[in-house]
Amino acid sequence: MKTQYLTSCSTEGLHHLAYTDWGSKDNPNILVCSHGLTRNKHDFDALANKLSTERRVICFDLPGRGESDWLNDKSAYDYKQYIVDALMIIARTGANKIDWLGTSMGGLLGMMLASLENSPIKSLILNDVGPFIPKAALIRIANYVGKLPYYDTAQELENYMRTTYAGFGDLSDEQWKHLLRYGQKKLDNGQITLNYDPNISLAFNHQPIEDIDLWPIWNNIQQRALIIRGENSDLLARSTTEQMLEQHPNAEFLEIPNTAHSPALMNNADIHSIEQWLDKAEPNSFIV
């Protein structure tokens, strides 16, 4: 799928966002996919390829990741900026309402968008993230984000990815090769590393790491929602999902076995479950 670009803005000027556009542009059923902290739009290639037979699917790179521009003002890597970028992507679709699927950071971004008055979010899929994130999980992420590995061979980088992103689940060799292909950056000295701006880690350095409590945002969300959890996730506790379901009558739950943080959503069974949920006319009848 060919990458396309649009122009967004920050306090320091303009930057380009990269995205892929799957399916018919005339299809009014639109799903926008937003990746995790250090990831990119190609994490959703398998899902977009399958779902685009019945809907239009937009997958985009947030600034500092993948093929999108890196920001000149490194302190601008925050949710205020990401909301602007997401709204630019949604505006490009030409639709008043869209479905949103977000993994981890992309899910938090979706929550914030869904909680806004006159939100463009019609339904919300949260992949292994919720309104409470424990300090321990944030410390684990902070211990690797921004500390880019540098290797001489692709195999070494793939081995690093298999370890760092083990929570993605039981992926095939072909699936890991896909993540490697789009997750690497080749340097002038011949080495390879991960394809993101290490300065996205600054958000972890501005203040001591503590639990994140976004329950007021969750309680303001009225849209139909699907909460996906990795069976062994340290970021989205089962108790958090139970509380989310108690507080949101239109929320439903899907737990993916043999995964942690966060399920890759690359396997046919997982994609089929998401497709079933999106295709439903009425909530609260999804059987897991």
Rank of each mutant, 00 (worst) to 15 (best):
T3R: 10
Y5I: 05
E12P: 01
G13M: 08
S24G: 08
S24L: 11
K25Q: 15
I30W: 08
N40W: 03
A48I: 00
K50H: 10
K50P: 04
I58Y: 04
C59K: 01
F60W: 15
D61V: 04
P63H: 05
G64P: 06
G66D: 10
W70M: 03
W70N: 08
L71I: 10
L71H: 07
K74L: 09
D78C: 14
Y82F: 15
D85M: 04
L87F: 04
I89D: 04
W100N: 05
S104I: 06
L109D: 05
I125C: 05
I133A: 13
P134F: 07
V145Q: 00
A154S: 12
A154K: 14
N159D: 14
Y165G: 01
A166Y: 04
F168R: 11
L171W: 05
S172V: 01
K185Y: 10
L194D: 00
L194T: 07
Y196I: 00
E210N: 12
Q223M: 08
L226C: 11
G230T: 07
N232S: 09
T240S: 11
E252V: 10
I256F: 02
H261I: 05
P263K: 03
A264G: 06
A269Q: 12
I274G: 06
L278K: 04
A281T: 11
E282P: 01
S285Y: 14
S285Q: 14
V288F: 12
